[in-house]
């Protein structure tokens, strides 16, 4: 697979480490009354998507950017690559 890094251009997937669902960006509020339940859901419950999936990749053999990829799990087509810090910054 080839990942089009927003800063470095096309890079081989072998340079990256995969983590998982990009929902890991949305760490729950630890002060909320429902924090225990929220963290359980955040950490352990995942959608098993057939189709477009947003997921986290880490450019370990490169510039050490965390990226958010939008990848179709049926075709491996990657339609969008963003810097995770930009995505996380927008959310907050």
């Amino acid at each position: 697979m080839i990942i089009h890094h927003p800063l470095l251009g096309p890079r081989d997937a072998a340079e990256f480490v995969y983590l998982g669902d990009a929902s890991l960006l949305n760490r729950p509020d630890p002060a909320a009354p429902s924090a225990a339940e929220d963290f359980y859901t955040y950490l352990h419950l995942r959608d098993n998507t057939a189709g477009e999936h947003r997921e986290l990749w880490y450019h370990e053999q490169g510039d050490r950017s965390w990226l958010v990829l939008t990848r179709n799990t049926l075709t491996h087509e990657i339609t969008r690559v963003e810097l995770a810090r930009d995505v996380a910054g927008q959310a907050s």
Binding site: W66, A84, R85, A88, G89
Partner: peptide, 8 residues
């Protein structure tokens, strides 16, 4: 991960 994804 913590630096870029949780507390940018």
């Amino acid at each position: 991960f913590c630096r870029q994804c949780l507390w940018p």
